[in-house]
Design a protein around this nucleic acid. Structure first.
Lengths: 213, 213
DNA sequence: ATTCATTTGTTCTTTATTTCACAATCCTTA
DNA sequence: TAAGGATTGTGAAATAAAGAACAAATGAAT
């Protein structure tokens, strides 16, 4: 429903644009044309200009785009000018890796607490983040938390998501290899490594129609 | 180029279909209709029927789809009936998590060797997988390897990918937060957690146009 | 100042994907 | 074995996204 004037495909490209602009600014580039930028992100320059145009006239004809200005604009648009607090559910191999990763570097996001079922992990700190008992999850107040990162086994994902939802969380980054069934007011993005790997293998084999040697 | 009769969007859904069918078969379901299946994977039933139709008539009118038959068909189509050997480049937090994960369980894929620059890691085994020196990468023969999983820092990703390419690898699952610049005969899928997190936050804020309390 | 090269913003065209609608067909049950 | 309900497979329509083309505007150079 929502009066979404920006196409979904455009919105999904914004983070890539933002990161690339961060690099350009860091390297001292003050301006860039849509075609040069397109080469960097491997997206057609027309698509880039059209993407930006949904937000108004961000560039100047004959000049291109001011990297600093554009970066700042995207920073606000992506809410990266404020700290985004998230929780992590499931302190296994992947969960631990994400806790160590620390999104704060390039991403104004902080994992403020973690949850797990393992009594050995509960109460400990992993890379500075305290681990709480899964039982507490549903009862806690997480209305200040923007999202939950789900790194539990597939069998527990649905239940964990429901508990997080009960605690006030509406956004989910789901790393568990299963489809979540949540009410409409929740929003889920699924990162599925198994799917990606299988898709990769499929496309590799099917682009070899023109196989040589 | 390649005579790709199956739409890209369809191909990208096949792994999800496959995994869901595996679960159905494991649970003893012998048949399923496109609408029931659609509920499970949260995809419109028409889309599912059309997706399958690109491969011929896989179902039976008035009956639905035979889960075992369909699963076996997708298994072959996705090359999951043979072992897919991959290598992993970058034994950091995420790389280690993936080595521990072991794709063999649900995915007929094995990480057969890993590469890293850290002398402390070289020569050791991580979760049963031996770690080799990054220097050896380009010189090795990896024509039997279907893909490389890239989990190195952004600054090293391009160089690492080029070495893998030189060793005979054409498929890449790129977890590094940077765009790879590779020749046309290489195929890259990018899994970008930072991008996913930012996109999630963007959509959360922009679907709240109809915000209540 | 004037000219020329550059580059945006945008309209129009093309391609890709999803959804609708329904005839054809098969299953099931009496 | 006949009738009725279920469900597929698929053309046609609708929607979404990408790409081509170019006028309008700007910057740079003389």
């Amino acid at each position: 429903m929502a009066s979404q004037t920006v196409p979904q495909a455009t919105a999904e490209r914004l983070p890539l644009y933002y990161r690339t602009l961060q690099q350009l600014v860091a390297n001292g580039k003050t301006r860039i044309s849509s075609s040069k930028f397109g080469e960097l992100v491997q997206i057609d320059s027309t698509t880039i200009r059209k993407d930006f145009s949904y937000f108004g006239a961000l560039g100047r004809k004959g000049y291109g785009y001011d990297t600093q200005y554009l970066m700042d604009f995207l920073k606000k648009t992506l809410y990266q000018d404020e700290l985004n607090r998230v929780i992590l559910i499931g302190v296994g191999h992947l969960g631990t890796a994400l806790l160590n990763h620390n999104f704060l570097k390039n991403n104004n996001t902080q994992i403020v607490r973690a949850y797990d079922v393992d009594p050995k992990k509960i109460g400990t700190k992993v890379s500075g983040t305290k681990v709480f008992a899964m039982d507490e999850l549903a009862a806690n107040d997480h209305h200040e938390i923007v999202a939950a990162i789900l790194t539990v086994p597939a069998a527990q994902a649905q239940e964990a998501a429901e508990k997080a939802l009960a605690s006030g969380i509406r956004g989910f980054l789901n790393f568990s290899p299963t489809t979540l069934n949540l009410p409409e007011n929740a929003y889920v993005r699924h990162v599925d490594m198994t799917v990606e790997l299988q898709a990769l293998i499929y496309f590799l084999n099917h682009s070899m129609e023109t196989k040589n040697s």
